[in-house]
Design a binder for these strands. Structure first.
Lengths: 223, 223
DNA sequence: ACGGGCGCTCTTGTATGCAAGATCGTTGAC
DNA sequence: GTCAACGATCTTGCATACAAGAGCGCCCGT
């Protein structure tokens, strides 16, 4: 995936718009006007259009022919679905990793979790987020299945904003830390099934928390 | 996903090129020249470029800035990795489906498998392929998780050419039929874990067969 | 003869121009 | 007053034009 520093403008734009969409700058169903975006980025419509093509395949925008690009925010149901798949994918990563992971990688995982702990102690949600990201990315890599790792990374990235939301919840960081430790322990024991379940629970709980958040603030409507 | 009949040219082109790549019309690493493709499709470079953007996100082509689009055929290792993920994803579909599937859907699955049987008896690999596809698509849908179903569908589509290859193997169709039956039986029993394992085996065996094919004809080289 | 530097050409990336479909307001008929 | 059809306008989709990087070969120096 690393491909040199150079980036086409269309990629930069795609990333920027993706960032905007994920950060909730656009409401669901909002139309992304080509000339407006082009103006905002100081380019012509062409790179903007190419960026839209890419975003449409990521599922972040829907391209309706002759109509334009519309941002497609996942509703609560789709979000839970994505968390479910994420949990399963990460679980598979752990199961596959358990049988082949080496001491170095295990130590790296523990180091990542230690970084999480430091951030948690400082109450720094941002730092925690980054450290947590490192932990999970390494877990994906340790699956030994690069394709799986790529898919997991993709979905992880897609769920980023929602996960970030969770961290604000009281006690979530501490709980997450403990779950990480359980995962590492299972991996160190070489127990794939236990590791898979630990990871599944660790991820699925986020979807569950989200479900509860939604019940208390039912401002979103299901599709 | 259904979005009306209308298709932009860039989508048509993307599909056509994808078809060509999947059917092996291009060697790995071949450069897809924009003007050549534009000429072949009788359009300008613009829609071709938009098609390339889409294909790059599917992983079928690699876009190297200022260099062009290069087809990226998965090597044998990546293929096995994809089959592994496919097996897990379909397994999850089955597990989720087992607890909620209804009689109508079960009967539809059996009908799909019956269609497989007819095709198998006739030795019609193409018809078998279509019927088999119907079986699996329905399985995805019955997971009740639309996001998961979408992801499964995507990967299924990506693996299409390799799966097709397998069907030529002697006895594979009959074996596949039996596996389908086992899946349906587990689902009917509401046994999610058994269904998941049956599906996993059903899919994973294809990767395994492929691995064996590769050992006998080691003309491909691993990345 | 061999290697490095320079420039030519080809290709990509972006901008602009143009045609056709979609949207929306208006107008006319009932 | 309501509804439908029509047209003006706006937007997309595509074609073409232009600029800049990448690749390649040639030439020159050693």
């Amino acid at each position: 995936m690393v491909r040199g520093m150079e980036q086409k403008r269309s990629e930069t734009i795609a990333d920027a718009v993706e960032e905007m969409i994920l950060s909730g700058a656009f409401a669901d169903g909002a139309r992304l006007d080509e000339v407006t975006l082009a103006g905002r980025f100081g380019v012509s419509r062409t790179p903007v259009r190419e960026a839209m093509q890419r975003l449409s395949l990521s599922g972040l925008v829907e391209l309706r022919p002759r109509r334009g690009a519309f941002v497609r925010q996942p509703g609560p149901i789709e979000m839970l679905e994505m968390f479910e798949v994420m949990a399963e994918l990460e679980g598979v990563c752990a199961r596959l990793g358990a049988s082949r992971i080496e001491d170095g990688a295990l130590n790296a995982l523990e180091a990542a979790n230690a970084a999480c702990a430091i951030a948690a102690e400082a109450g720094d949600a941002d730092a925690y987020y980054r450290a947590n990201e490192g932990f999970h990315h390494r877990l994906y890599a340790e699956s030994g299945n690069r394709f799986l790792a790529g898919e997991a990374l993709r979905l992880h990235r897609r769920l980023q904003p929602y996960r970030r939301l969770q961290l604000r919840l009281r006690g979530r960081m501490a709980q997450s830390l403990a779950e990480h430790a359980a995962i590492v322990a299972a991996l160190r024991a070489g127990d794939g099934d236990r590791a898979a379940k630990a990871v599944y629970d660790h991820v699925a709980v986020q979807g569950e928390k989200f479900r509860r958040l939604m019940r208390t603030f039912p401002n979103d409507d299901a599709a």
